[in-house]
Design a protein around this nucleic acid. Structure first.
Length: 195
DNA sequence: CATGGGATTGACT
DNA sequence: GTCAATCCCATGC
């Protein structure tokens, strides 16, 4: 996945990231849920201009933006669009692939569907923390690889984004149809056709 | 420098 | 369905 992948409209980047493989520290998973955020809408951290926290998503595309949520969880994002535009994609869920037992140890849970089925869960499973903020995805250690065999034609189900209080009308949440690793609440029709 | 709130999760009624 | 945990950062004095 070259640098040009992230230098596109953030909604397209969010859609195309579903099916790609996120990897870090001996663990990896297929991205099955994303959300797009853009400076033009009030649910985005970048709405209202550049600050010390959100400066990453205003910077060059293809970098990690990791921030602390509710004092407990680290949430993982990818910066999108050219330098100067405040846009990013929140990765909300993975289907575990490599290092599943390591994920179990980090999460303190056994059930595979509980390992990466939420934005705070997958960062714990992959050991992504604030130390991984503002890193180049092409250089690592956090990497994103193109869709592997079987995922090229993944079907998307879109819906409103989760956990926000503003701009709830935008259908900027994208989920892999039929995949039970998607975080709840599931969008209508998630399991139709492929479940 | 003090304060308020959040792109969540897990436990509990 | 409700609710607390807990920390970073943005804002305001």
């Amino acid at each position: 996945m070259g640098p040009e992948f992230y230098d596109r409209p953030v909604v397209l980047v969010a859609q195309d990231l579903v099916g790609c493989v996120l990897a870090h520290a001996g663990t990896s998973g297929v991205i099955v849920e994303t959300e797009a955020y853009h400076q033009s809408e009030p649910a985005a951290h970048s709405f209202g201009g550049r600050t010390e926290r959100n400066r990453i998503i205003f910077g060059p595309p293809g970098r990690t933006y990791v921030y602390r949520s509710y004092g407990i969880h680290a949430l993982f994002n990818v910066s999108a669009m050219r330098d100067g535009i405040g846009a990013g994609v929140l990765v909300r869920a993975l289907e575990p692939v490599d290092g599943v037992d390591l994920m179990r140890a980090r999460r303190g849970l056994q059930r595979e569907l509980d390992l990466c089925s939420g934005p705070g869960k997958l960062t714990q499973a992959l050991d992504i923390e604030l130390k991984d903020n503002n890193q180049d995805l092409l250089a690592g250690p956090v990497t994103i690889a193109p869709r592997p065999p079987g995922w090229e034609q993944v079907e998307l189900v879109s819906g409103p984004r989760i956990g926000i209080t503003r701009a709830m009308d935008l259908p900027w949440r994208f989920c892999a149809r039929g995949n039970r690793n998607v975080s709840k609440p599931w969008p209508p029709g998630l399991l139709d056709g492929a479940g």
